[in-house]
Design a protein around this nucleic acid. Structure first.
Ligand SMILES: [Mn+2]
Ligand SMILES: [Mn+2]
Ligand SMILES: [Zn+2]
Ligand SMILES: [Zn+2]
Lengths: 145, 145
DNA sequence: ATAGTTAATTAGAACCATTCTAATCTATTG
DNA sequence: CAATAGATTAGAATGGTTCTAATTAACTAT
């Protein structure tokens, strides 16, 4: 018990810190979801997936709260929403500048480091608007080896 | 009446030609939708929008047929599906190599010619897969002038 | 032209990810 | 320890999309 708490202490404290700095109350549910999301690196999860993981880890949390939390984390800059699949949103724990490979047949997203793609634009943004973000999606397909 | 038929003849024949070459029966509904889609250049429409236009043009067609037709046209290479908005698919009449500006606040899509964007890749596609298409989405935001 | 065959259309139901509601609970503050 | 603002929740509602199975229309062979 004690040993487990001690081990779990570091990521939990880190999660509390994160939540405090973005002005969200560190509730049991948000702390648990933050740990599931951020203890591994670079994840692309759907709300249903994360809800399933929470249940699997014996964390009692409603699907509504999972949705609320994912959106709050996104607004706070802790997550990024990736819209790539009609009718399903992915949430990306990698908020650094990067792009994606996407295998549509397998609904599989993987990262491309931002520095690995360079692009030269001619077109200005339409008059009266400003560029917010450039997103590059490389659609790939599995082939027999 | 006659004058109208004669004028409408050209695009209608063109639409029949298109459908025939992709192996789809030129039904009243598909011909009407093809005309609505292709008589103007570079459109980005949702199924509901196109259905509304058809109704406005006194074309009797069900929403199910609009969906069927959009997907068939997409499979046939006459349209391209653009997934950019969670829970809404756009169909693009421009099937040439090009990219998009997207104003999320106004759900407004506009084209960027393919030749206006050049990119230098370092990353290979993951092992056992091949690049199918590279999609660039430039997220823009309207600013006060 | 006609009949037979195949494909397309349709209304309405079903689906399903997501959002909403309003009641309950919890963290925070004084 | 109140009082209050904020968070969670079950379950209903939403809305774009897909499905179903019955009807209608296009095509093919005669
Ligand atoms: Mn969202
Ligand atoms: Mn689709
Ligand atoms: Zn990513
Ligand atoms: Zn386009």
């Amino acid at each position: 018990m004690i040993r487990r708490s001690l081990r779990a202490g570091a990521p939990l404290l880190q999660a509390m810190e994160q939540l405090k700095t973005v002005g969200l109350r560190p509730t049991r549910q948000r702390l648990a979801l933050a740990q599931l999301l951020f203890e591994r690196s670079s994840r692309h999860v759907t709300a249903e997936q994360l809800h399933g993981e929470a249940r699997g880890a014996a964390v009692r949390v409603s699907l509504a709260t999972v949705y609320n939390t994912l959106h709050q984390f996104t607004s706070a800059g802790l997550l990024r929403e990736v819209v790539i699949d009609p009718g399903r949103s992915y949430f990306d724990t990698n908020t650094s500048d990067h792009h994606h490979f996407y295998d549509q047949a397998h609904c599989a997203l993987s990262d491309i480091p931002g520095h690995a793609v360079s692009l030269a634009f001619l077109p200005q943004a339409p008059d009266g608007s400003v560029v917010e973000r450039v997103e590059v999606i490389v659609h790939i397909r599995k082939v027999p080896r």
